[in-house]
Design a protein around this nucleic acid. Structure first.
Length: 423
DNA sequence: CTATAACTCTCAA
DNA sequence: CTAACGTTGAGAGTTATAG
């Protein structure tokens, strides 16, 4: 019955601190792709009022004044640290669901004889010592409640000190606690729903938990009804142990600087296709449709805006980078309009199916590149993405579209040559 | 008309 | 110097379209 939710504290910042202890105790933020906005903030940075998703250009001056350290995101490092953390946590239960890069659920059925709070503390100690990352643990009978318990652990409510087990609280203690938490903190309740709930006078978790189920179902949706049941201890969201195959695969990026010419757009699109196709093959799928889009900045009101998008159905589903690239570039040509300053492009692989059971197309007799793809994936897996690539993906001189990462830390865990030398 | 496809909105990390 | 604001995936509900 009990479920634990373990979540890394400001995970990206914590990863950086493991390899650069001088950052300990300092205000630190990690920026999104393209050094766009803050996506991870240390406690100290939060104390200096850097909001989540704050654009870097808006607070870089303040950052300088207060000595806030800003870092470009280093996903290779974070993914590797995540793997280590998940491996350690998997020792605590045979029943693990990796929910995101920095958090996982552990099913604790059959562990009831243990002191779960002490068990949670052991998780924290071990992850901290073996991986270097601080985590908090929430324990409760449902996923939604476990998330909430984790929130309490993070906020150090109910004397939790990093571990909060709702099972330890009496009914009235829990009610009291939930009365102090706003609905916005509930998993599945975002900005929009909070507004609507507040407008109906439902402001706290306790208020939602004890609302009228029928009315809630009528005025909102099944999702809200499920959330309410979960808050009352009835599990509606089950553990998903094996990662399911994706239904669509997206690869998109904002450009380092705006792009006008089609040559650069072609390079970017071909590069994104290569990334998406690699993921596609990794899960053994083939794509039945390719979508490509280009757009001008959503924030600029001073220049002409344009969103172009084209979906290309393939005669036969494919997992071949060459085939998918051809389709995407064909689509790009149709939507490209000269004169605009494009700030972003992306591709979507959709209508995915099992690669082994693709219905062949009787008109385009099979040019099979599967062995080439296998070699390409193998080489790129060892030497890094893009080591072996199609010519379409980049031989150009001008690469304005490449993303900006001006404050990146070294790849401490994945590149020998970037290890700091011991002196 | 119904069944499905396509699209929009919301949420999450 | 100026301008500069993330990515990926899922699911529910609504609207459009085909038959």
């Amino acid at each position: 019955m009990p479920i634990a939710l373990i979540d890394g504290n400001n995970f990206y910042v914590s990863c950086e601190r493991v390899f650069n202890p001088k950052l300990e105790g300092k205000p630190v933020v990690v920026l999104s792709n393209n050094d766009g906005v803050a996506v991870s903030r240390s406690l100290e940075a939060k104390a200096l009022d850097v909001p989540m998703a704050e654009p870097w250009f808006k607070f870089s001056a303040t950052a300088k004044k207060h000595g806030i350290v800003a870092l470009s995101s280093n996903y290779a490092l974070y993914a590797n640290m995540s793997d280590r953390m998940m491996a350690v946590l998997s020792q605590f239960s045979p029943d693990q669901e990796v929910y995101s890069i920095d958090e996982c659920f552990l099913g604790l059925d059959g562990f009831d004889h243990l002191d779960l709070v002490e068990y949670g503390r052991e998780m924290r100690r071990r992850v901290r010592q073996w991986v270097g990352i601080p985590v908090c643990v929430g324990i409760a009978p449902t996923k939604t409640l476990a998330k909430l318990a984790n929130y309490c652990a993070k906020k150090n409510l109910a004397g939790s000190e990093g571990v909060c087990d709702f099972g330890r609280l009496s009914g009235s203690e829990l009610s009291g606690l939930l009365t102090t938490i706003e609905v916005e903190e509930i998993w599945g309740v975002g900005r929009k729903l909070s507004e609507q709930l507040n407008a109906r006078g439902i402001k706290t978790v306790e208020a939602l938990r004890t609302a009228d189920a029928k009315t809630l179902r009528r005025e909102f949706s099944v999702v809200m009804e499920r959330t309410m049941m979960e808050l009352n201890g009835t599990p509606c969201i089950s553990m998903e142990e094996v990662a399911s195959v994706k239904q669509q695969i997206i690869s998109s990026r904002s450009f380092g600087t705006p792009v006008k010419d089609i040559e650069q757009l072609q390079e970017a699109v071909a590069t994104y296709i290569a990334i998406a196709a690699e993921k596609l093959r990794a899960q053994g799928s083939a794509a039945g449709m390719v979508q490509v889009y280009i757009r001008t900045s959503a924030f600029r009101t001073d220049i002409h805006s344009y969103n172009g998008q084209q979906t290309i159905p393939l005669p036969a589903a494919s997992d071949d980078t060459l085939c998918l690239t051809r389709a995407a570039l064909w689509g790009l040509k149709r939507i490209y309009k000269p004169g605009y300053s494009y700030s972003k492009a992306g591709v979507v692989l959709m209508n995915l199916c099992d690669a082994d059971s693709v219905q062949p197309d009787m008109f385009s007799a099979g040019k099979d590149n599967s062995r080439v793809m296998a070699v390409m994936d193998k080489i790129n897996n060892i030497y890094g993405r893009g080591t072996l690539r199609t010519a379409a993906a980049g031989v150009g001189q001008k690469q304005d579209w490449r993303m900006k990462r001006e404050m990146m830390s070294p790849a401490y865990t994945t590149k020998w040559d970037q290890l700091p030398t011991a002196r």
